[in-house]
């Protein structure tokens, strides 16, 4: 199942290289939502972008989608830099689609399910270019069935407020699938859904990869979800990827202190001793110097960094962004030293 082994030589379908996104805040200072983030996703691969709010995961997803133009760095699609002209973006959106975070709010309350799903089909003239000469009704039906809403015509004339949370999410996925994209970006696809429905939506995403060969980027704060469906994981902290690798590597043997802490607080019964970090992610207008995680780092606090002789480096020496390769990598001074030792 794991794609990572064979994929190293294959060209990524979508790739972010050193993407930096700045927002001007009201007080005039600059918030750096992304500070050199690298990510690559291959065809048919499911990559989870994991982090807390404020980690920049949604900003990275929006940058991949072309909704956010990076201040520096670039997004590549199929080897070519993203064309931000109106035409270029139009073509791009045929290939890459996104399902936004808030399923309930993402549907126009005055449009029926049919209208919502047909929107992309009409915008991109999909009926005219359909090789099998199908009508718009056929295409909408096909998209809805692909998203697991069967029989599709029963839902055509429903309005969003008449749908359950799970159905809304499926309609949104159907709307994206109607364009026959090669890649789907899903921002927190199940966080607003009830627990018993989450599994079905995740199974749908897995099925889409299986049947349509869809590559999927799933943005989430939920490590359990990543364990459920992702091939690879990129853990983000304060605008950077701090650890990346296959799901088994990152969740099975985490190396970054932040990943370890995140993993330890997943509520379960017989846990590992939870490492509860104090405070919250700092304000992106004031990214700490040295390693950006050092003020909250448990390894620095408990002296294990000092024991390895890297505590000075942690506080003063910034780390280079992690390159987006399939290999398990960590942005941590302590880890670098420990790795050399072993």
């Amino acid at each position: 199942m794991s794609v990572a082994g064979t994929a190293t030589e294959e060209q990524p379908l979508i790739e972010a290289r050193g993407v930096q996104v700045d927002f001007a805040t009201r007080s005039g200072s600059v918030a750096r939502a992304l500070d050199g983030a690298d990510l690559s996703v291959r065809r048919g691969e499911i990559v989870a972008l994991v982090g807390e709010s404020g980690s920049g995961k949604t900003t990275l997803a929006r940058s991949l989608m072309g909704l956010q133009r990076p201040s520096s760095g670039e997004v590549f699609f199929d080897g070519a830099p993203l064309d931000y002209s109106i035409r270029g973006l139009r073509r791009f959106r045929n290939q890459v689609q996104m399902v936004l975070q808030d399923a309930a709010g993402s549907l126009n309350p005055r449009q029926t399910v049919y209208e919502s799903v047909a929107e992309g089909i009409r915008l991109h003239g999909k009926v005219a270019e359909d090789p099998q000469g199908r009508t718009e009704v056929d295409l909408v039906s096909a998209a809805l069935s692909d998203a697991g809403l069967r029989p599709p015509d029963r839902l055509f004339l429903r309005y969003p407020h008449e749908l359950s949370g799970g159905q809304k999410q499926r309609v949104l996925i159907a709307g994206a699938l109607a364009l026959r994209p090669q890649m789907l970006i899903a921002d927190e696809p199940v966080s607003s859904l009830d627990a018993s429905i989450r599994g079905e939506i995740l199974a749908l995403l897995l099925g889409l990869r299986e049947e349509l060969g869809l590559g999927i980027v799933v943005v989430t704060h939920d490590l359990g979800l990543a364990w459920n469906i992702a091939d690879r994981i990129a853990v983000m902290y304060l605008g950077r990827v701090v650890e990346s690798g296959t799901t088994e590597e990152v969740l099975g043997s985490p190396r970054h202190p932040y990943t370890k802490a995140l993993l330890s607080v997943v509520p379960e019964i017989e846990h590992i001793e939870p490492i509860v970090l104090t405070g919250e992610i700092p304000d992106p207008t004031r990214i700490p110097g040295g390693c950006r995680f050092h003020p909250r780092c448990p390894a620095l606090a408990d002296g294990s960094a000092a024991a390895a002789g890297v505590d000075e480096q942690c506080r003063t020496e910034p780390l280079a962004p992690l390159p987006a390769t399939g290999v398990h990598r960590v942005a941590c001074h302590l880890d670098t030293v420990l790795n050399i030792v072993s």
């Binding site: 045929n94 549907l107 992309g120 949104l172 709307g175 994206a176 364009l179």
Partner: peptide, 11 residues
């Protein structure tokens, strides 16, 4: 969000 969705679809 539905306007953002429309933009994502290419409107």
């Amino acid at each position: 969000p539905y306007l953002e969705r429309a933009r994502v679809l290419g409107a």
